[in-house]
Computed example of a mutant assay.
Amino acid sequence: MHFIRRLWSWFSAVDTVPDRSTERLFAERALINGDWTAFDLDTVKLLIAMFDTDKNGTIGFSEFAGLWKYIKDWQDVFKHFDRDQSGSIDSSELTQALQQFGYNLSRNLVALVQRKYDPTATAATGGRGPPPGITFDRFVRACVVIRQLSEAFKGLDTDRDGWIQVNYEQFMETVLRLP
């Protein structure tokens, strides 16, 4: 009960416009990485889409409680795979995580995931910003996206042989329906 009161206090503090919670509000105030930086906005959008159960574009308290638990669970996963405790996931840690989740991606695919979700891979930070590797928020997003894409592929792989026979329209429709 004490936890619920604390969570309500946190939610009330960040929800300055009651019943009108926005992605930006959550990005700036509610969802914070282990280094106190705000979550990446694309990750926030993905999480809101996942937890906005009534599909009204906002996160109410009960949805926020589910989201909070989800984030807490992912923090434990992140800490487990961040073996060097750098605050980010490097390519070998990413490979281990994905393998334990049941995704045996090639080196090339892991490298692509690393480049896509590592903010330092595409731009120099000038000594500021996150350490090299995938930050917590982007790690969550990468894993969720890989799961969603894998599930979408499985839906199209009707004979379960690892190959799909779909036309471009079917493929695009499947991918674009993902949150």
Rank of each mutant, 00 (worst) to 15 (best):
W74F: 12
T37G: 09
P130F: 02
T37F: 08
F61E: 04
N167W: 01
D76F: 07
D73I: 11
Y168E: 08
D82Y: 01
D35Q: 07
R177Q: 11
D90L: 04
L176N: 08
T122M: 09
T122G: 15
S21Q: 06
D52N: 12
I71Q: 02
K55R: 15
Y103T: 08
Y168S: 12
W74D: 07
T174L: 01
N33M: 05
K79E: 14
Q148H: 08
A124P: 07
W10D: 12
H2Y: 10
S86K: 12
G127Y: 04
G102K: 04
K45R: 15
L156M: 15
A49K: 14
W74P: 04
P119Y: 02
S150D: 11
L109I: 10
M172L: 14
S91Y: 01
I71V: 15
V144Q: 06
Y168T: 12
S21H: 00
W68L: 03
R20H: 14
D73A: 11
T120V: 10
R24K: 15
W10V: 11
I59E: 02
E173A: 14
I4T: 13
H80K: 15
A123V: 14
Q96R: 09
I164A: 08
N33R: 06
G162S: 10
V144W: 00
F51R: 05
W74Q: 07
L109G: 00
E151L: 12
E151S: 12
S21Y: 00
R20M: 10
W74V: 07
F39R: 02
Q99T: 10
T158V: 15
S88F: 02
Y117M: 02
G127R: 06
L46H: 04
L149E: 01
I71N: 01
V175D: 03
